[in-house]
Design a protein around this nucleic acid. Structure first.
Ligand SMILES: [Zn+2]
Length: 229
DNA sequence: CGGTTTTGACCAGCGC
DNA sequence: GCGCTGGTCAAAACCG
């Protein structure tokens, strides 16, 4: 266990390093373009999750004055990813975003890089510490995994029935870039390790079929007004 | 003009 | 079976 933890730590540190490098590259590139007058258009600008979302519904919660919005990924035809966003009633600054399913198409480069690395980390973890008896994630070991990484800025917990990851970024620091990269990473990791055979449900309406689900609870620092996110 | 948001209708589950 | 409720459709409005 200790050995695995050490290994995991190294992997995570590596992830962090990769992310830092990528972010630096992005910043440099954007600055260069700004210098050259080639400002990145709003449309193709970086989106919160790295994907384009189309809103397809909104419902008012019964006892809450905060509506719930439903989005669908429009980056590729037939991308089964859905997303629903809900604001907390009392604390308007808290958003709860729920992603369901995994993308059908490649993600943007930074997210992809992070995703692959994170996936590798999760893979190592699974093969190493998991007794592989139940085949599913055995409790909170993903939590422990990403704990040193987050160290108070995010907590990850998983539930058994089907891949469900809950990120609580309520008190995250100013680096919300990190969140943007972390989210698709976790998504891809769960997709890679808990590859559920999509079970061709004939257009079921309810009962969010067997997909990996990711809940993200975060404060809306400046993230909320993201138009398509 | 194309794509997205808005917004009421609609429809399937589910509890009673 | 009935009505409530949450999720989705689709047409119109909206916007760059
Ligand atoms: Zn997608």
């Amino acid at each position: 266990m200790n050995e695995e933890n050490r290994l995991l730590r190294e992997v995570l540190i590596r992830v962090a390093a990769d992310y830092n490098a990528l972010e630096m590259q992005i910043v440099q590139l954007s600055q260069q373009r700004r210098r050259h007058g080639h400002e990145i258009p709003r449309k193709t600008r970086w989106i919160s999750d790295g994907c384009q979302w189309r809103k397809y519904g909104q419902k008012m919660a019964k006892g809450n004055p905060c509506p719930r919005a439903y989005y669908r990924c429009t980056m590729a035809g037939g991308c089964p990813v859905r997303k629903q966003v809900q604001r907390c009633a009392e604390d308007r600054s808290i958003l709860t975003t729920t992603y369901e399913g995994n993308h059908n198409h490649p993600l943007p480069p930074p997210a992809m890089a992070m995703a692959s690395t994170t996936s590798a980390a999760a893979s190592i973890l699974l093969s190493g510490s998991m007794p592989s008896g139940d085949g599913l994630m055995g409790g909170n070991f993903l939590t422990r995994t990403l704990m040193p990484f987050s160290s108070g800025m995010a907590s990850i917990s998983a539930s058994s029935p089907f891949p469900t990851v809950t990120l609580d970024l309520t008190h995250a620091p100013s680096s919300n870039h990190f969140q943007r990269a972390l989210l698709p990473s976790v998504a891809a990791a769960t997709a890679a390790n808990f590859n559920v055979p999509l079970q061709a449900l004939p257009r079921r309406r309810k009962s969010s079929g067997r997909h990996s689900t990711i809940k993200q609870i975060c404060r809306s620092t400046s993230l909320l007004p993201s138009t398509t996110g």
